[in-house]
Lab assay of single mutants.
Amino acid sequence: MFKRLMMVALLVIAPLSAATAADQTNPYKLMDEAAQKTFDRLKNEQPQIRANPDYLRTIVDQELLPYVQVKYAGALVLGQYYKSATPAQREAYFAAFREYLKQAYGQALAMYHGQTYQIAPEQPLGDKTIVPIRVTIIDPNGRPPVRLDFQWRKNSQTGNWQAYDMIAEGVSMITTKQNEWGTLLRTKGIDGLTAQLKSISQQKITLEEKK
Rank of each mutant, 00 (worst) to 15 (best):
A96I: 15
I200N: 08
I205K: 15
Q24D: 13
V68K: 13
T194P: 14
P124I: 12
R50H: 08
G192D: 14
T187W: 11
L185A: 00
Q48F: 06
I49H: 05
P121A: 00
L148D: 01
D32H: 12
P66L: 04
L148P: 04
E169M: 06
Q196I: 06
F150Q: 04
G159P: 14
F39H: 01
M31L: 05
V146F: 07
V60C: 08
M166R: 04
D139C: 14
Y117M: 07
A14R: 02
I200V: 02
I167M: 04
K188L: 07
Q69P: 04
A9R: 01
N155W: 02
L185M: 09
L101Q: 14
D139I: 05
K210S: 13
R153L: 01
D165S: 00
G126L: 10
M166A: 00
K102Q: 11
N179T: 12
A163G: 15
D165V: 00
A9V: 15
T58G: 06
G182M: 12
V171M: 01
D40V: 12
Y81T: 08
M6H: 01
M6W: 03
K198V: 09
P140H: 14
R41T: 08
F94W: 11
S201F: 13
G159T: 12
L65V: 11
E45V: 12
I49P: 04
T206H: 13
M173D: 00
L109H: 08
Q80Y: 14
L125C: 07
I190Y: 10
E99K: 06
Q24Y: 08
L65R: 05
A92H: 13
E122L: 10
T176C: 00
A14L: 15
K102A: 14
D32Y: 08
W161G: 05
R57W: 10
G159Y: 12
Q151F: 09
R90A: 04
Q123A: 03
H113R: 07
Q103A: 11
L64D: 01
K198Q: 13
N155D: 04
Q202T: 10
G189T: 12
M1Q: 00
Q202Y: 15
S172P: 00
E209M: 13
R4T: 15
Y28M: 08
Q107P: 05
K204T: 13
V68G: 02
I200Y: 13
G79I: 00
M6C: 04
D127K: 11
M7D: 01
D32P: 11
T187R: 07
Y112H: 04
E122N: 10
Q202P: 11
Q162C: 04
D23T: 10
Y72G: 00
Q178A: 10
K210T: 12
P47T: 13
N141S: 06
G142S: 11
G170P: 02
R153I: 02
E33F: 03
K204Q: 13
T58M: 07
A110W: 13
K29Q: 13
L197Y: 15
L56M: 15
Q62A: 12
P66H: 07
P15A: 05
N155M: 11
Q196A: 06
F39E: 01
G192V: 06
S17L: 08
Y112M: 04
A88L: 14
S84C: 10
Y117T: 05
Q202R: 10
L5K: 01
R57T: 15
K71V: 03
G192C: 15
W181C: 15
R50M: 10
V12N: 02
S156L: 03
G182K: 15
A34N: 05
D40N: 11
A96F: 06
T183V: 05
E63V: 03
P124G: 13
Q202W: 14
K204E: 10
N26A: 05
W161A: 04
T176P: 00
E99D: 13
S201A: 01
K154L: 09
R90E: 03
A168Y: 13
A120V: 14
K3Y: 06
P47A: 08
D32A: 12
Q123I: 10
G182D: 00
I13G: 04
L42K: 03
L148M: 03
A73Q: 07
S201V: 06
A85C: 13
L5S: 03
A73C: 03
M173G: 05
